[in-house]
């Protein structure tokens, strides 16, 4: 039975978080039940104030084999990190 149900990715916005975060996946026959299952499976400990579900099949993912070309060039570009500024003390934590 469960193998006939499509997979859904679940995103929850926490009590204090601004963004929905990916928390896991589950099976459900449709979007409405996916929300309900997400509520039952992923918000049992008061984790969330909002739930998104997305059919896993709708997610386009980068290929792990392209990790090199996609991400390694950024390693050598330290100047993209704003670490070369002196921040005045009165600014505080940024």
């Amino acid at each position: 039975m469960s193998s006939e149900w499509p997979l859904w990715e679940v995103f929850i916005r926490g009590q204090h978080g601004l963004n929905h975060r990916h928390v896991g996946s589950l099976h459900a026959p449709d979007a409405e039940l996916a929300i309900r299952h997400a509520r039952d499976v992923y918000t049992r400990r008061n984790e969330g104030v909002s739930i998104w579900v997305v059919p896993s099949a709708q997610i386009t993912a980068s290929a792990p084999s392209e990790k090199g070309p996609l991400f390694e060039p950024a390693n050598a570009k330290v100047y993209r990190h704003p670490t070369f500024y002196d921040i005045p003390d009165e600014v505080g934590h940024m």
Partner: peptide, 12 residues
């Protein structure tokens, strides 16, 4: 329960 999701829902 027939599926994991329903199992947890029932336990809740």
């Amino acid at each position: 329960a027939p599926v994991l999701e329903e199992d947890i829902a029932l336990a809740n």
